[in-house]
Nucleic acid binder design. Structure first.
Length: 819
RNA sequence: GCGACCGUGGCGGAAUGGCAGACGCGCGUGGCUUAGGACCACGUGGGGCAACCCGUGGGGGUUCGAAUCCCUCCGGUCGCACCA
């Protein structure tokens, strides 16, 4: 068919430039934010401009989200799809330091390039509502948010240990410390420093953050994401128990998830920095204890947390009393006990905890078995820690001996409560969120310290506290933010009493910027409020959020927290910000994660220049399941391009032909309706690769039957439009439409037309498919089985044998059992 | 160590209890061409002339029927990690 005409040929660069310009001119992607009848807020994770440009991983994510937004729009929703830039933060700042360019100069340049790429890939963005977190009109409200939380008692200040790299002269996030060394200086050990920091009380919502994960009326999220959050929240049930210390030293409070093993607690361990250590250490042990504490303090958090390290520790000289056995047990300090978890102290049960066992073995502390499986001698020596509950019963446990471990746990908690030794408690692994950063490139925390009035928030009418444009933005050795070096900024009158006071010099965590950005998008033109009530009611919570699972526990948890807090404070009607969330997969290159250090980052620009944005989009969506990602190989990109070329030829032929609509073969009609159904369902579940495959199949069927029925071709173009928007627009115009293809309706199918007049039923004999019989569509079971039994191939396997069983799955298959 | 996910042709993948390998890449043969890294047609899991047999990481199980469900082992990816 293709040699009948010489089509002008598909030239993506011309087509794409034309439609990108036209979309902008005609404001095609700008829904009516106040009057939209069917609002659909389609959100994608905004990028951080910590590189010159976007790589193919970003493009994959944005294209997948954009494709969904365009699909929803064709289905008749008023889709609001904004974009912005998460431009503050340590990533962007480090990049600026590396290039030796001031971030205030560099970042806008990067943003301009990102913006160009986002336009070029054909994203359906509403550019009216673009935002950048670095814009004072944005971070004014980030600061406002901090003040609301401070006033509500949800922001507080406390001392905390941080990672410090002496080479970078800065605080590092935990994820920047690799096995105790700085990620940028592999020979430099990271140190610990104590600094006073601001925290948000996220732990107060731990229960609700966990419970809502299962509430589908509030949130329908990818399982992998809710699972990650559940683990991160880390709920555990156990007990807090008090162990009296001999002498006049009070009691040690411990948390344990295994109160049932209390009879086996043969020693106690405190974290080296536990405040009680100073009181209970004996004179003779003091020097050793002090030395150990100092060594522990100098060690970074990360290397201290590596699980398989050799156990170290020092005896304090003190003894506590096990409330269950009334025996005196030694109190040690060891760095395998962490101050940040539980109470910073444990009862050690070496027989049933691997770490305690290692420690007891090394230091010669007694090991007492209190759990045993049926048939085990309770007096048998313990050779490795066994910590199971099922099939285990308590032994050597006084009056609880013989009880199954599961019941024993509850009974011992009741006994502890009755005796006043402790109580059952629920603990979370989640910590309060530290939001202070001793850095330059972020929103200054809007607080002022006055010697008379204490910490005072900056009055809201004075916001924003502008980030001063200083030249020496690099962090230094001092442990305080570069802002502290600027006296004219640092000193300011106290808003309450007018005395000379000092500004907070830390900036806030970049995750605070991104925790509320979705609220700002619909309200960017309002300068007197962070988010407009009516706009927020119309568009929020976000209808569909698509992003990377690397943010499963950081950004996505912090955003949920901020929404909950704003809800409690009366600013939001909802408490969960994202109604649906889907995690997309990762694009790897040659099996490895793309990263600058590996040097395998693929930049999309050259591919777009060579093949066109539409081919590139189609290739990205076709290379594997969107929610799983895949390997980027340029070898496959010609397939999608050939597909578009063939569609182009078909449209061209359809446009030239005068015969309309009367030459369509029945098998093509069936394929057509099947495809509409399949594509629609696949789009809904983000199975873009199969949605594209189905469209290719339809095209092949159409070409094979030499048909170019106009209505069919139009619907093909509409189904292709979410993937190849410029291409679809051009075809739509060639087919004679004066409007955007995105004003068309998504095709509907007729279920009756998705099946053929006759159907082919596979026939199995003794579990193996032996033949197929063709029967009329409405044929009943008897007719079909009869046809199967009389089929010559089937008879080769059944003749002379007795029919023992027959199974008919309507419309699917016949299974015969003979013998 | 804990948790989650995954394992299918030469490659990316499809099929989530009912015809394994859709769709695409690559490859092979032929056509068209001055030419082809363009396009068109046919073929393409393995074995066998064929009838058939074998085949979804290995082993076992449930079922008329298993890539799919269960048990177990092996391998891989990601997240958390001395969490008491």
């Amino acid at each position: 068919m293709s040699d009948q005409h010489h089509a002008p040929g598909y030239d993506p660069q011309t087509v794409e430039a034309k439609w990108e310009a036209r979309w902008a001119e005609r404001h095609i992607n700008e829904p009516d934010l106040d009057g939209a009848a069917r609002p659909f807020y389609n959100l994608m994770m905004f990028p951080y401009p910590s590189a010159e440009g976007l790589h193919v991983g970003n493009m994959f994510a944005f294209t997948g989200s954009d494709t969904y937004g365009r699909f929803k729009r064709l289905q008749g929703h008023n889709v609001f799809q904004p974009i912005g830039f998460d431009a503050f933060g340590i990533h962007s700042e480090n990049y600026a330091i590396k290039l030796g360019i001031h971030p205030a100069e560099l970042i806008p340049r990067n943003i301009a390039n990102f913006r160009r790429q986002l336009v070029r890939i054909g994203g359906m963005f509403d550019w009216r509502n673009e935002l950048a977190t670095t814009d004072p009109s944005y971070y004014k409200w980030t600061q406002w948010l901090f003040i609301q939380l401070f006033k509500a008692g949800k922001a507080y200040r406390k001392y905390g240990m941080v990672n410090w790299c002496p080479e970078c002269k800065t605080v590092l996030a935990n994820e920047q410390v690799i096995n105790g060394f700085c990620e940028r200086h592999p020979d430099t050990r990271v140190e610990q420093r104590a600094l006073e920091q601001w925290y948000f009380r996220i732990t107060e919502y731990a229960d609700r953050l966990l419970a809502n994960l299962d509430d589908h009326s509030k949130m329908d999220w990818s399982d992998s994401t809710t699972t990650a959050q559940r683990n991160w929240l880390g709920r555990s049930e156990g007990a807090e128990i008090e162990f009296e210390v001999e002498g006049d030293c009070g009691a040690i409070r411990v948390f344990t998830t295994r109160p049932d093993t209390i009879f086996g607690a043969t020693f106690m361990v405190l974290a080296p920095e536990h405040p009680l250590v100073a009181q209970l250490v004996t004179e003779s042990q003091r020097p050793a204890v002090e030395a150990y504490r100092q060594a522990a303090a100098g060690r970074d958090l990360v290397s201290r947390r590596i699980g398989d390290r050799d156990k170290t520790g020092v005896f304090t000289g003190a003894y506590a009393v096990n409330p269950a056995t009334a025996q005196r047990i030694p109190v040690w300090i060891a760095d395998y006990v962490l101050m940040e978890y539980g109470t910073g102290a444990i009862m050690a049960v070496p027989a049933h905890d691997e770490r305690d066992f290692d420690f007891a073995t090394k230091f010669g502390v007694p090991v007492v078995r209190v759990l045993a499986r049926a048939g085990t001698d309770p007096a048998a020596r313990v050779t490795e820690a066994e910590s199971g509950t099922e099939d285990y019963a308590l032994v050597n446990s006084g009056r609880f001996s013989g009880r199954p471990a599961v019941d024993g746990k509850a009974e011992i908690i009741r006994w502890l409560e009755a005796e006043g030794h402790g109580k059952g408690v629920v603990r979370f692994r989640l910590h309060d969120w530290c939001i202070s950063r001793q850095r330059y490139w972020g929103p200054p925390i809007p607080m002022i310290y006055c010697d008379v009035c204490g910490p005072v928030p900056v009055p809201e009418e004075d916001l924003p506290v502008l980030l001063p444009p200083i030249a020496d933005f690099r962090p230094d050795d001092s442990g305080v933010s570069p802002l502290a070096r600027h006296e004219e900024w640092y000193y300011t009158p106290c808003p309450r009493c007018g005395e000379r006071a000092r500004r907070e010099t830390d900036v806030s965590d970049t995750f605070l910027d991104s925790a509320w950005y979705y609220l700002r998008y619909p309200s960017t033109e309002f300068t007197d409020r962070p988010f407009d009530a009516a706009r927020t009611r119309k568009w929020c919570p976000v209808t569909m959020y698509i992003g990377g699972n690397e943010h499963a526990v950081l950004h996505l948890l912090y955003s949920r927290y901020i929404a909950m807090a704003l809800h409690e404070l009366g600013h939001l009607a909802f408490e969960e910000p994202f109604k649906q969330f889907r995690a997309h997969g990762l694009i790897v290159k040659d099996g490895a994660k793309m990263s600058k250090s590996r040097g395998n980052v693929v930049i999309p620009d050259d591919y777009i220049a060579k093949w066109g944005a539409d081919t590139f989009r189609l290739y990205l969506m076709f290379l594997g399941p969107f929610q799983e990602g895949g390997d980027f190989r340029d070898s496959g990109i010609s397939g999608p391009r050939r597909f578009l070329d063939k569609v182009w030829d078909l449209v061209d032929q359809c446009e030239r032909t005068t015969l309309v609509g009367n030459e369509i073969h029945q098998s093509v009609v069936v394929k057509w309706h099947q495809t509409k159904k399949k594509v629609t369902e696949a789009m809904e579940s983000l199975s873009y690769n199969t949605a594209i495959a189905a469209q290719m199949e339809l095209l092949n069927a159409v070409r094979d039957s030499n048909c170019c029925e106009r209505h069919l071709v139009k619907e093909m173009i509409v189904m292709l439009a979410p993937f190849a928007p410029h291409f679809a627009e051009e075809c739509w115009e060639i087919l004679g439409h004066g409007t955007s293809v995105f004003e068309a309706d998504w095709p509907e199918w007729d279920d009756r037309l998705t099946v053929e007049d006759t159907m082919e039923i596979p026939v199995q004999v003794n579990g193996k498919t032996r033949s197929r019989v063709r029967v009329p569509r409405g044929a009943g079971e008897e007719a079909i089985v009869a046809a199967a039994l009389s089929d010559t191939t089937v008879r080769r396997f059944t003749d002379g044998k007795e029919l023992r069983k027959r199974i008919y799955v309507p419309g699917r298959m016949v299974s015969l059992v003979v013998g």
